[in-house]
Amino acid sequence: MPESVDVITIEARRAVLDAEVASQVKLGWRVVSRTDTTAQLVKDKGPDGCVTIFLLLFFIVPGILYMILYKGSENLYLEVDDHGNVKRTAQA
């Protein structure tokens, strides 16, 4: 007979997700959407330093525009499974 695998309650899964979201928010992430067991977070990132330096050295105006206008972001998807494990999926 196989061993029974402990499945935690939805309230416990929510508590695990709350703790993980709180730690990610301290690292600069913002919550975009949230359910009891999943959360989607986003973090704004600035312009790439190497590209900026190259553009500033050779093309002053495009370099300045790149620094001002570039708005990139990263996405992080968190999911708590039935056993309380947090799965992280990142997208650049």
Rank of each mutant, 00 (worst) to 15 (best):
M1V: 04
M1W: 04
P2V: 11
E3L: 14
V5G: 09
V7F: 11
I8R: 09
T9I: 05
T9V: 05
T9D: 08
T9G: 13
I10M: 06
E11Q: 15
A12M: 11
A12N: 10
A12C: 01
R13A: 12
R13V: 01
R13T: 02
R14G: 04
R14K: 14
R14M: 06
R14W: 02
V16D: 11
V16W: 10
L17M: 07
D18H: 08
A19Q: 15
A19G: 10
E20A: 15
V21D: 06
A22F: 06
A22K: 11
S23L: 12
S23I: 04
Q24C: 12
Q24L: 10
Q24E: 15
V25Q: 11
V25I: 15
K26S: 14
G28M: 11
W29G: 07
W29M: 08
R30Y: 02
R30S: 14
R30L: 07
V31W: 03
V32C: 00
S33E: 04
S33W: 00
R34P: 01
T35R: 03
T35W: 02
D36M: 02
D36A: 13
T37P: 00
T38C: 05
T38V: 07
T38W: 00
A39E: 07
Q40R: 13
Q40N: 11
L41W: 09
V42P: 01
V42C: 02
V42N: 06
D44Q: 11
K45Q: 14
K45L: 10
G46H: 07
G46V: 07
G46I: 03
P47T: 03
P47E: 12
D48Q: 05
D48I: 04
G49W: 09
G49V: 09
C50Q: 03
T52K: 06
T52V: 06
T52N: 00
T52R: 09
I53T: 11
I53E: 05
F54L: 15
F54Q: 01
F54M: 14
L55G: 05
L55C: 07
L57V: 04
L57H: 00
F59W: 06
F59R: 03
I60K: 02
V61A: 08
V61M: 05
P62T: 02
G63C: 08
I64V: 15
Y66G: 03
M67T: 03
M67W: 10
M67D: 00
I68L: 14
L69H: 01
L69W: 08
Y70C: 04
Y70S: 08
K71G: 13
K71D: 15
S73Y: 13
S73H: 10
S73A: 12
S73D: 10
E74T: 06
E74D: 15
E74G: 05
N75E: 12
N75P: 01
L76G: 00
Y77G: 00
L78Y: 11
E79I: 05
E79Y: 09
E79G: 10
V80N: 09
D81L: 04
D82Q: 14
D82K: 15
G84K: 04
N85Q: 12
N85Y: 13
N85K: 14
R88H: 11
T89F: 04
A90Y: 14
A90P: 03
A92Y: 13
